[in-house]
């Protein structure tokens, strides 16, 4: 326990050193060169970022922009993940289901979600519907893929073991195939989450009046590089927080996997 704390203290010390030196290099670079118009210094951006929590950028303050973006991501991400997990596990475990869905899935898989932007607007309008559709795709594709490989990788010996212990096929699906696939599903959920967050930013840059993506695109109209960087900072921080939350959920659900701290 003490060792872990010691290592954590050490890790955060290195993190602070690396961030501080990055900011210093940035500040010195801006000072020494003549690029202030296209590249503001770090303090300016940080001050603007903090300020965006108090004074609105456009119509809303930063937290409200973030909330708008999250309201687009979260519901579509959840639906996409649930559909992806269900379809992926069934495809990985039951051959006929795989034969039926694999060709369609393989066609959709390589298409980046943002390629659907024009069609999604035609189909679902410029409101939330089209954004939900894009994020659904961004989550669904990687989650399905990882769920398939999870169900495929189930150790055949464990299945024999289940049969030997008198378990029915249905019981084994629930008690062996599903738990075995959980770590795979989670890596799909992580990839899907990053994809969803990236996709909402892209979708907001095309058409919206609020959200973190809008902050960036509207800075283009005013030529405000600092505002653009503020938006990027918001995206980075929220993306990092989402991934961290996800990792914690995974650690709780997969207490049985031994990990080095």
């Amino acid at each position: 326990m003490r060792k872990i704390l010691q290592r954590m203290a050490q890790n955060s010390m290195y993190a602070i050193i690396s961030i501080v030196s990055f900011l210093l290099l940035w500040a010195i670079g801006v000072q020494l060169s003549d690029i202030k118009i296209v590249m503001p210094g770090p303090w300016e951006v940080i001050i603007d970022f903090v300020d965006s929590f108090i004074h609105p950028v456009g119509r809303y303050t930063m937290p409200v922009h973030i909330l708008y973006s999250l309201m687009r991501v979260v519901p579509a991400y959840i639906v996409g993940s649930v559909v992806g997990i269900t379809l992926g596990i069934l495809m990985g475990w039951y051959r006929p289901i795989n034969s039926i869905f694999r060709p369609i899935y393989e066609l959709i898989r390589p298409i980046p979600p943002i390629a659907w932007i024009p069609i999604s607007i035609v189909w679902f309008g410029i409101g939330e519907g089209s954004k939900w559709f894009l994020i659904f795709l961004a989550a669904f594709v990687p989650v399905t893929l990882n769920s398939i490989s999870g169900a495929r990788s189930v150790d055949p010996l464990l299945i024999k073991c289940g049969e030997m212990l008198g378990a029915s096929k249905k019981h084994m699906f629930r008690t062996i195939v599903l738990p075995f696939s959980v770590p795979y599903i989670f890596s799909g959920l992580q990839v899907g989450l990053a994809g969803s967050w990236a996709t909402v930013v892209a979708a907001e840059m095309i058409r919206s009046t609020e959200g973190v993506g809008w902050i960036i695109i509207s800075s283009m109209d005013t030529n405000d590089v600092a505002q653009s960087l503020v938006g990027i900072m918001g995206i980075g921080i929220v993306g990092f927080l989402l991934a961290t939350i996800m990792r914690n959920v995974e650690d709780r659900l997969c207490a049985w996997t031994v990990r080095e701290v």
């Binding site: 010996l157 464990l158 073991c161 049969e163 030997m164 008690t175 062996i176 738990p179 959980v182 049985w256």
Partner: peptide, 20 residues
């Protein structure tokens, strides 16, 4: 003809369920 509960097996590689 198939494995069943009447015939238990202890495996060389143990084959335990790690999530349980």
């Amino acid at each position: 003809v198939r494995p069943g509960a009447e015939r238990g097996v202890v495996f060389q590689s143990m084959a335990l369920f790690p999530w349980l």
